[in-house]
Amino acid sequence: MAYFSGLSDALRITFVQMMIVSFIAMVIFVYGMIINLQKWGAGVTGYALEPEAGSKGSAIRFLKTWWKQVTEESHHGHGKPILETLVLDILFQRRILLRSPVRWFMHFTIFAGWMTLFAMSGMMFAVEMTERFIELPFTAAQFREVLQLPNDIFGYILLIGVVIALVRRLFVSEVREASIMYDWVLIGVVFIVTVSGFVADGIRTGDIVWNIGMSGETAMAYAPPAALFHSVISLLFCIAFIPYSKYIHIIATPLAILANKGGE
């Protein structure tokens, strides 16, 4: 059984390899999230309270406290409806736009590119898995071809955002001076994952920009490891690494914005 990632047999990565890496990534992610939820759940459930004696951090306590705050009325008079918060503050990221259009453009392109590529990878995986058991009106290869253009478009959207982020952090003195390893690791990893994706695709398809000079048999030989490298670091850094790094903001920031009803 082969995991689909190319146009010919020579360009395939084995299904087993991918499943093992995916499983490891998910286990690391789930473990980290449990630790984080327990860490958050070590907090109290309301204003001016103390933790119950002997109680440990609990994910359930966190979720209950969060939901209570989401649904209770605000005394501050700042609260916005959940739907508005969800659409404008979380998906559209209005709070960033209000502060800095450039930073909003940077963050939104990363967000939109990343999430769409993630969703399309998921769809590709789903099609290939389904094809094993049910006959579909199209093949996985045909579906891959359909996704090629949107993959390219959203890949470049992501790349634009990542490059702006990197340039800001490297060349804008106030940003560079305030940056700590916590920040550098995030942007560094996103950059490596993005570029490795382009290179893996470039070697496979013979793209003159991204094939890094490989063609013919060399490309045939290097395409699978390049694809594997991209897939592995994507899974490890972009899923497994989330709970242990600044990536956690992908989960915590929307939850905070919702809990505070869009913020002040």
């Binding site: 907090g43 966190f62 903001h249 915590a252 914005i257």
Partner: peptide, 10 residues
């Protein structure tokens, strides 16, 4: 609160 501890990570 549990939410405040999460805010640190947000």
């Amino acid at each position: 609160t549990a939410v405040q501890l999460m805010e640190l990570d947000s």
